[in-house]
Write a protein that binds this DNA or RNA. Structure first.
Lengths: 259, 259
DNA sequence: CGCATAATTGATTCAGCTCAAACCGAGTGG
DNA sequence: CCACTCGGTTTGAGCTGAATCAATTATGCG
C-alpha cells in the first residue's frame, strides 16, 4: 500500500494494462514457425521492427472493439480470449506460447472481436505493422506460414463449436484435461495452468458446474488434485470423451498451440 | 422416374456426389475479391488452372476426414458446413457465393474437420493446388487476400461460439433472420433460403425448438410466413437480440459472406 | 491472524431436448 | 378428382443438464 496502490483491488478492476518493455529473445524469435523457410535476412528485418512487451497477470492486452498495433506473438504465458459482458465472461480460446494474438485483427486493422487477457505473466513480441506488411508482400513463404497459423486458429474455433453443440459439459472438461496431459507429455506431472474459474469460462460452463463435473470425470479415471492432473485410466477416459467429433489430435504441425 | 431414378430416395441417401463439369464464368471469376489488386496476368494463370463444378442439392462436396483437391470458391448456391454424426448433424457455418470452401484444409492439405453439403444447387470453381501454391508464393497481394478470407471465417466462427454461449435460442434465431434481412436489403421481400431443419442445425438447436422460437420472436416483431421474412418492428427486434456481443455487422469488406 | 478471493456443496429453476402424435402440402396413382 | 403417401413442420407432455442462488468451506497472502 505504500505506493498508494492496493494490489488486490488493482487486480480486480482489471487495471488498464501498463506493460513493461522487455527484451526480445532473439533465438526464440528466429525459431518461430512462422519464419520457417523464410530467408534469414528477411527475418532479421522483422526482428529489427520488433519490441518485446511484458504484461502482468490479469492485465488486459486487447480490449474488444479496439484495434491492434502490429503482429503480436506470444512468447511466454497464457492469454485468454473471451467476450466479457459485465461480470460474466465467455471464453473463446486460450492462447499459448508461439501463438499469434488475433492475427486477423492486427493484419487487417479490424477491431478485436474479443478481449485478450493475460492469465499468467505474459511476454509478447510485437512486430511493426509496416514491416509485416512489407514482408508479407514480398515473401510468399512468410505469408503462407501466417496463413497456416490463422487457419489453425479457425480449426480450433470449429472444434469449440462442435464441442459446445454435441458434447456434454463433463465430456468437454475431460477432453480438455486429456489434451493438456498430452501437451505436457514430457513433463512428469501434468499441470492445470490456470484457475478453474477461467477453465470453466473457456469450456462454456459455470464454475459451479465445473466443480461438479470434476466429480463426474473422477469416476471415469481423470482426477484433479490441486493443480495436478492425474489420469488413472486413460482408456476409459478416452472412451468417456465420446467418439471424437474431429479426427487427429495433434495440431502442432499447424501453427497452433492454443487450447 | 423415367430416367430410372427416384429423386426422393436419391436425395435422402445423400448420394455420393457426382458433380457435373460446368463452365467457369470468367468475368465473375476475375471480379472475385481474392483477386483484388492482383495482376491480371496472374489471375489469368489461375483461371487457366480452374475448373467449374456443379453439385446438385443435398449432395456432399467434402466429407469430414477427407482431403480437398484445390482452392474452392463458391459461385452459386449455399453450402452447409457441419459435423454429421449418424442422423443428427451440427452446423458450423453456412457458406454463400464468393466464400472459400475450407481454405485452410485445401491449402495445407489437412483433412476437413467438417462435411460440406450443398443445400441448394451449387456451383464452384476449383483452382489446381499447384497453381495456387505458385501464385501464393509469388504474389503477396493474393496471399494477403486469401488470408483475409480465412481470417474472416475465423471471425464468423468466433461469433458463433459467442452466440452459443451467451445468447438464448430465440435470440440466435432472431439475429440470424435480421442478418438475412440486411443481406438482402436490396430485394423487396427477404427470403429464408434454406429448410428450417438446416437452419436449426446451424443455430445449434433442434427443429422443434426452432419452431417454438419462431413463435417467440413473432411477439418481438419478426415473422416468418412461408419462406418470407417479415420484420414488423425492427427497433424492438434489435432490442430483443440483446446487446450485440460483437460490434460491427457488415463483414463483407472482409472476404466473408458466410452466414 | 484476518481478510479477500476461490472453490465446493446443496436446493431450486429453467431452457432446451426427447419422444410421440397430429398436421400439412406436394407429388403420385387410382 | 380424391385418396394416399411421404417429407417436413408443428404441437404437446415430460425429462434433464446445466444455470442460478445461497450458504459454506478452503486457499492464499499481507
Amino acid at each position: 500500500m505504500r505506493d498508494g496502490y492496493d494490489h488486490r483491488s488493482a487486480a480486480k478492476v482489471l487495471a488498464p494494462a501498463h506493460p513493461a518493455i522487455a527484451r526480445v529473445d532473439v533465438d526464440e524469435f528466429r525459431a518461430h514457425p512462422i519464419f520457417q523457410g523464410v530467408k534469414e535476412q528477411v527475418v532479421d528485418r522483422l526482428l529489427q521492427a520488433s519490441t518485446g512487451l511484458q504484461y502482468r497477470e490479469r492485465s488486459i492486452i486487447v480490449r474488444e472493439g479496439a484495434g491492434l498495433s502490429g503482429l503480436q506473438i506470444i512468447q511466454r504465458g497464457l492469454v485468454d480470449l473471451a467476450h466479457v459482458d459485465g461480470d460474466n465472461e465467455c471464453g473463446v480460446l486460450l492462447l499459448s506460447p508461439k501463438d499469434l494474438l488475433l492475427p486477423g485483427a492486427s493484419l487487417f486493422a479490424e477491431d478485436a472481436l474479443v478481449t485478450g487477457m493475460a492469465l499468467t505473466t505474459t511476454r509478447l513480441v510485437i512486430i511493426e505493422p509496416s514491416a509485416v506488411d512489407a514482408v508479407l508482400e514480398e515473401s510468399g513463404v512468410f505469408a503462407r506460414n501466417v496463413m497456416n497459423a490463422v487457419s489453425g486458429q479457425w480449426r480450433m474455433a470449429v472444434r469449440n463449436i462442435l464441442d459446445l453443440n454435441c458434447r456434454s459439459a463433463a465430456q468437454r472438461l475431460a477432453c480438455f484435461l486429456l489434451r493438456l496431459v498430452d501437451l505436457q507429455a514430457d513433463s512428469p506431472a501434468p499441470i492445470l495452468p490456470i484457475a478453474k474459474r477461467h477453465l470453466a469460462g473457456r469450456l462454456g460452463m459455470t464454475a459451479e458446474t465445473l466443480s461438479r463435473m470434476l466429480q463426474v470425470i473422477a469416476t471415469e479415471g481423470i482426477h484433479l488434485r490441486g493443480r495436478m492432473i492425474i489420469v488413472r485410466n486413460r482408456a476409459r477416459a478416452d472412451e468417456f470423451c465420446g467418439p471424437d467429433p474431429y479426427s487427429s489430435r495433434d495440431d502442432r504441425h499447424l501453427n497452433v498451440f492454443a487450447l
